[in-house]
Design a protein around this nucleic acid. Structure first.
Lengths: 215, 215
DNA sequence: TTTCTAAACGAACACTGTTCGGTTATGCAA
DNA sequence: TTGCATAACCGAACAGTGTTCGTTTAGAAA
């Protein structure tokens, strides 16, 4: 146990460090127990600080959720951006890569995936910068690719907006379906096999859709 | 205000009536404010009864949610069953009808749709019969149709289980995507147009997938 | 060294879902 | 018709929550 007297974070640097400490510990707890399973008291305890002190750094549990998720979404979106930058040539192939990336991301860390794409933010009347600036870059990236594919004549459909949402819906929907509790395990386990098997199944068909259906 | 003295529901019939009153009022409030926005106290108040009295009829808010949703899922599943029974011939056409039915269902009452397919059940340690018996019949129906289509040679793919989840994922995913708050309105509104427009867009492509891709 | 801002925090507030204990209406047996 | 056991009913209490208040005081700036 650290019995040294508590310091106060007054410099900009120290304050950012404290903020990061809160977000990191919050993320760990949120992933382990879900936002509902974590109280601000328990978070404060883990950080060895008073409950009220948390509120010098974040205005609400909701805003903490957005702050935590900002990092993970940045990781996801940066990965997407890198794929786009390093890719050369055919845009349909790029879309395949993005789909594959999404599947890999879901498989890599299921708890993270569910937190990002399925768990709703806790509610609160207090907003903050992270919620206000919250916006999904992924859909803009996707639109960008679809736009190029249309211009290159690789996709016949001209409605880039609708088609982008449609593609997102397919990839996200087909993956999500086995990560939800919506269908009990009763139905899922005998039907879809392991996640790996199911993922390679849907990847096959997503490729088909991208190649055969849209060209 | 009803100032007549309170009666007690002791007959099986009267108890069922009370239960139904609770479920109906609960449904109204849940749809209007969401499960989180409704307290058991406010529900009791609306029903002109004590808070504790609710618990002679349901063991938890969570179980109330399952009781409420049971009705709506029955409506959805019965509608699906009727379509299946009245349909003759080609199973791909039947799948198209089911997809169309899902879209119509979502369009008909968005609040209901979101409650059923997007809102997670409130959590509680107390379970009850409605939660325990909760199971999604839709996926079994869907599997049934896919099975027949495979047997009739209308679908080449042999893995009925995976394919059924895949199809569900496509329909649910592409519809859900415009009913979530995941993408801010910023991105959605200029891109997908009205719900009607978007729905007819995705229906066109779902038909294509069913006809061109799987046969 | 003094001043003064704001980080830190225990206590309190207003809420929540749920349980407890007592009251008493009510269906049923005598 | 009467007496009785049962369980519907309910106000109060309990254990929790997110958040705010008021106070203390560390520590950067003067």
């Amino acid at each position: 146990m650290d019995k040294t007297k508590k310091k106060r974070a007054r410099s900009e640097e120290a304050k950012e460090k404290q903020f990061k400490r809160i977000v990191d510990a919050g993320r760990e707890l949120f992933l382990e127990y879900g936002p509902e399973g974590v109280s601000m008291r328990s978070l404060a305890k883990k950080l060895n600080m008073g409950q009220a002190s948390l509120y010098t750094y974040i205005p609400s549990k909701r805003e903490l959720w957005f702050a935590i998720m900002r990092n993970d979404f940045s990781i996801f979106e940066n990965g997407m951006g890198e794929i786009m930058q390093s890719h050369r040539g055919n845009n349909i192939e790029l879309l395949e890569k993005i789909a594959k990336y999404y599947l890999k991301f879901a498989q890599e860390d299921e708890r993270r995936y569910r937190m990002m794409f399925q768990t709703p933010a806790p509610s609160s009347k207090n907003t903050g910068p992270f919620e206000l600036q919250y916006d999904s870059h992924s859909i803009y990236y996707l639109k960008e690719i679809v736009q190029k594919a249309v211009e290159a004549g690789e996709i016949k459909e001209k409605d880039v907006g609708k088609l982008s949402f449609f593609i997102w819906g397919i990839v996200h929907g087909t993956v999500s379906v086995i990560h939800t509790e919506f269908f009990g395990e009763r139905a899922k386990i005998p039907d879809v096999g392991s996640i790996e098997e199911y993922h390679s199944f849907i990847l096959k068909y997503i490729k088909k859709i991208l190649n055969d259906l849209l060209s």
